[in-house]
């Protein structure tokens, strides 16, 4: 069933069950999403997609609209919130874009640029985070991890067992890689896990900088262009 909502005052028709992000896309308005992947259920972990639904700030990727809903995405205060949430992620980890092989195909980097973040508004923490280089094919670089939990919730082996898990709490939370389960993954499954990671925390060993500058994912089409044509991942 179709329902009608307004996005920044513009009426649009969407299917029942559509999210705030879907409604925004239907209206041609861009709301950046980071942890959301179009092939999977919304995680709602990163909170970058802050938008307003009937006056309340929600995560656009997971909040559903109803008939007559009033959605706001372009307001200055919302843009500031989104930029600050991204800035918190940058300040919290060690995001060394100049030397990261995920540069140019990193969702965090692309989304941050779209929010207008030039440098984080928060003091950089430069945490000492342990990397896990022990696996034969996967390099787990925790410096870049934003704890979106895409890998934790979505990466499974053929028997449905998780490969990545979370341990610790609060600031000590970190992703662990189960080496025994990881060894059972096919090369395609490893490549899919690397691709699923929105930052450069899960990398394939022995590949490196395989796409030249200019040909990388977000060099070819920006994350904004992709989102506006319905590609969100």
């Amino acid at each position: 069933m179709s329902i009608t909502v307004t996005v920044d005052g513009v009426p649009v028709t969407v299917e029942e069950g559509a999210t705030v992000a879907d409604a925004a896309t239907a209206a041609g308005a861009y709301v950046p999403t980071l942890c959301f992947h179009e092939d999977h259920p919304a995680l709602g972990t990163c909170r970058v997609c802050a938008a307003r639904l009937d006056g309340r700030v929600v995560a656009a990727c997971s909040a559903e609209v109803h008939d007559g809903a009033e959605v706001e995405v372009a307001a200055d205060d919302l843009a500031t919130m989104r930029r600050q949430v991204v800035g918190l992620l940058f300040a919290e980890g060690n995001h060394v874009c100049p030397s990261c092989e995920k540069s140019g195909r990193c969702d965090l980097q692309a989304v941050a640029a779209e929010t207008g973040m030039l440098t984080s508004e928060f003091p950089y923490r430069y945490p000492g985070r342990e990397t896990d280089p022990g696996d034969a094919r996967i390099w787990l670089a925790r410096d870049r991890c934003i704890l979106c939990q895409r890998c934790v919730d979505l990466v499974r082996d053929d028997e449905g067992r998780p490969v990545f898990t979370l341990t610790g709490r609060g600031p000590d939370t970190r992703v662990e890689l189960d080496h025994a389960t990881a060894a059972g993954l096919s090369d395609e499954q490893v490549a899919a896990a690397v691709d699923l990671c929105p930052v450069g925390a899960i990398l394939r060993k022995g590949v490196g900088y395989d796409e030249p500058i200019g040909a990388r994912r977000f060099d070819v089409a920006s994350v904004r262009e992709r989102a506006l044509r319905g590609e969100r991942r």
Binding site: V96, C97, P98, S99, T119, S120, Y124, P127, G128
Partner: peptide
């Protein structure tokens, strides 16, 4: 004006911070 990664957040030299 802060110009470039090093001025903005420390850049490559700031790799020493976590060590």
């Amino acid at each position: 004006v802060s110009v470039g990664a090093c001025a903005l957040w420390g850049g490559i030299p700031s790799l020493r911070n976590s060590i």
